[in-house]
């Protein structure tokens, strides 16, 4: 079974964010970029599915600039078979991204498309279900585990208060959250092999972004509060403060 995984290049989660000179985006100097963590789960899910079935091909797909090739190579080193870079602008408008991805995916029409539940930069949590809607395919979001069964994918989707089980007939789109798919590390052999795997580059069929960032700000520093005291003896004072000062008890 052929699987496409959409992945995105984002700043490492350790990054200390600073606002750039334009006042609308981050200062990129010194920022280390990685594959978005949820996309790693999605790549892992695709690789395991292929391994279990013993056949098929895993393609990783990204919309971005040339620097995103590095992210694609990381996925190839994990074990993906081939990579496609759609060169184009990336904005917070997930619908514009979904349109560019749909234009590419519509052509190859794979039975399963996997994405991360959200990208660890804009945290928009939307591209997966938008893509599915554009392609006219069923979609399950925030899936921590899935199995293939009789031409369907059975998804365990994390919702408030529990897990919902959804059965989607293939072809389907699934967004992956943290759960069963702890990502593997690329082996040295994998890294070497990745250099020879196909990485295609083409112009994205970009749609204009209709969501514009007017300004970006850092959150107000949370003032370090007070250390109420040490040990259990400090508890009555803490409770008094929570009740009288913070008004939360």
């Amino acid at each position: 079974m052929n699987i496409i995984v959409c992945i995105k290049r984002v700043p490492d989660t350790e990054t200390r964010i600073r606002v750039g000179d334009d006042g609308t985006s981050i200062d990129e100097s010194g920022v280390k970029y990685v594959m978005s963590p949820y996309d790693e789960f999605a790549v892992e899910a695709a690789l395991r599915t292929k391994e279990e079935l013993g056949e098929g091909e895993v393609t990783v797909l990204t919309l971005g600039d040339d620097a995103s090739q590095e992210t694609l190579r990381t996925a190839l080193a994990m074990g993906a078979d081939k990579a496609v870079l759609l060169q184009g602008d990336v904005s917070p408008d997930g619908l514009a991204t979904a349109k560019a991805l749909a234009a590419e995916i519509g052509e190859s029409d794979p039975p399963l498309v996997l994405l991360g539940v959200k990208a660890a930069d804009d945290d928009q949590q939307q591209v997966g279900p938008m893509l599915a809607t554009l392609l006219g395919r069923p979609c399950a979001t925030a899936v921590s585990n899935f199995e293939l069964k009789d031409g369907a994918v059975v998804c365990h989707s994390e919702v408030e208060g529990g897990t919902q089980v959804l059965e989607l007939p293939l072809p389907a789109v699934v967004t992956i959250t943290k759960g069963e798919f702890e990502p593997r590390y690329a082996s040295l052999k994998g890294i070497m092999a990745a250099k020879r795997k196909p990485l295609e580059t083409r112009e994205a069929q970009s749609a204009p972004s209709r969501l514009e960032v007017k300004s970006m700000e850092l959150p107000p520093e949370r003032e370090a509060g007070k250390i109420v005291g040490e040990g259990a003896d400090a508890v009555p004072e803490l409770v008094r403060l929570l009740r009288e000062e913070a008004n939360v008890l």
Partner: peptide, 16 residues
């Protein structure tokens, strides 16, 4: 809205 998991906030203009 918060971005970068709350490390920054953006103000958005919606053109639709």
């Amino acid at each position: 809205r918060p971005v970068y998991a709350g490390k920054a906030f953006t103000q958005l203009k919606v053109d639709a």
